[in-house]
Write a protein that binds this DNA or RNA. Structure first.
Length: 418
RNA sequence: GUGGCUAUAGCUCAGCAUGGCAGAGCACCAGAUUGUGGAUCUGGCUGUCGCGGGUUCAAAUCCCGCUAGCCACCCCA
């Protein structure tokens, strides 16, 4: 009887247990295989970064204000748990001198991210992302390429019923003029917008297009579209991305209301949704071009494009789609020995381990009970050992499926486990 | 961060309206079966009724607070 409440997992944190680990492994392996097949190399960056790195990237968004895990270490440094991968990957690109290698640097990463959000299904405070970045080149072909990486990965996992939304939000050259146009369009309706949007009108008008509050919807349809006001270079890039996606056989929908709220985003933005998901706002992957980010971090201005995808959500969808991932048995062989034969049992297990995964049942239970648990674990063979057999260095080898059993010398076990 | 629903055995849940002995199925353990798994039957174990307080002769049940989970919103750098 516990003397106090057992200590449970921290809110928003969860364990991935052995039986669930199989499908995670499939998803992670598919991610790595697809990324590598496009020439992307794996990078691992720290979970902890300077809080300032994240704050500069997120500026004064809600996300940074309310959702960042922020703390001080013993040396008084102000740090944060990474809420996304891009800021750290870009930092590592410069610190690791990848900018002096052939461009672009093609990088991918899978790992945990942290956001102090209210947990709900598919949303945890520690969650996992597959992140792909092409840094150091501005060709729109790379925009299309990272989209193709994302789509190929999701297809590999059996998610073929997908919807790709695409837009371009211009760059520092053409966007300021467009934003003025947008403000001019919205100003007459200012009083009819909801409070947050009234503020956005002056501070960040692009977000007006992204607003989901019902009262703000009627004004969207006639709002000027950013793709009608791109500069020469952005127009060319926008056309190139679409041409490349067409050629790759990737269908997309132009969503003129798909935007990003931060200044360093440029040109391409995209999001991938499950097509059958009742217009759900739960994106499986999202990304785009962020030519201004490196400079925002204090590095030389460097173009880049990438995407991030939440593994938790993708895996839930794969499971919901009914795909069966058969978990491998914990051990293919289980060694059952009478009490007092632990040394012999361990030695037999060591011999068998040359060819198969082996576990030893050290419980002091009846043989019947041990057989039952070996069966439940999915063992293909059991090796039974009595004192007199151990003395003679032989054992009973039983194949579970057929029930066949025979005496086998220890040395002969590996060749019988086939 | 806002609103709603929920929390009872290891798991899934009933019981709560109208306060009165803590329940079922599954799982687990054992036996039927003289050291040998699966099917069947029989029996058995398992409870801080999420936590804390209040009302009451009496609280799983009613009230308040907290915590956690789920759903929607929000957010998704």
């Amino acid at each position: 009887m516990p003397s106090s409440e057992p200590i449970k997992a921290v809110r928003g944190m969860r364990d991935i247990l052995p039986r669930d680990r199989a499908i995670w492994r499939v998803a992670e392996k598919a991610a790595a295989d697809v990324a590598r097949s496009f020439g992307y190399g794996e990078i691992v960056t720290p979970l902890i970064e300077h809080a300032e790195l994240i704050e500069r990237v997120g500026e004064d968004t809600d996300a940074v204000a309310k959702e960042l895990y922020r703390f001080e270490d013993r040396g008084g440094r102000k740090l944060a748990l990474r809420p996304e991968a891009t800021a750290g990957v870009v930092r590592a690109y410069f610190e690791g001198h990848l900018n002096q290698e052939p461009q672009p640097a093609r990088l991918f990463l899978t790992g945990p991210m942290f956001r102090y959000n209210r947990p709900q299904k598919g949303r945890y405070r520690q969650f996992f992302q597959f992140d792909v970045e092409a840094i150091g080149a501005e060709s729109p072909a790379l925009d299309a390429e990272v989209i193709e990486v994302a789509m190929t990965w999701l297809h590999e996992l059996g998610l073929s019923d997908l919807k790709l939304d695409l837009n371009s939000i211009g760059d520092g050259k053409c966007r300021p003029a467009y934003l003025e146009l947008l403000r001019a369009y919205y100003r007459p309706f200012k009083d009819e917008l909801h409070g947050e949007c009234q503020r956005r009108l002056e501070t960040n008008p692009l977000l007006l297009l992204d607003c989901k509050v019902p009262q703000c919807q009627p004004f969207k349809a006639n709002a000027p579209r950013v793709t009608d006001h791109l500069c020469e270079e952005c127009t060319v890039a926008w056309a190139a991305v679409r041409r490349l996606l067409d050629a790759a056989g990737i269908e997309y929908r132009h969503d003129p209301y798909l935007v990003r709220g931060l200044d360093y985003y440029t040109r391409t933005v995209f999001e991938i949704f499950p097509a059958s998901g009742s217009g759900s706002q739960d994106a499986l992957a999202g990304g785009g071009r962020y030519d201004g980010l490196a400079q925002a971090e204090g590095w030389p201005s460097t173009p880049a494009v990438g995407f991030a995808s939440g593994l938790d959500r993708v895996i839930e969808l794969v499971e919901a789609s009914g795909a069966e991932v058969i978990a491998a048995p914990v051990a293919e062989v289980v060694v059952l020995a009478d009490a007092g034969l632990e040394v012999a049992a361990a030695e037999v297990a060591r011999i068998c381990r040359a060819v198969r995964s082996v576990a030893v049942d050290y419980e002091t239970k009846s043989l019947k009970a041990k057989m039952r648990s070996a069966n439940k674990l999915g063992a293909r063979w059991v090796v039974l050992l009595t004192a007199s057999e151990a003395e003679r260095r032989v054992a009973q080898l039983k194949e579970m499926a057929s029930g066949d059993q025979a005496e086998v010398a220890w040395d002969q076990l590996p060749e019988r486990l086939v």
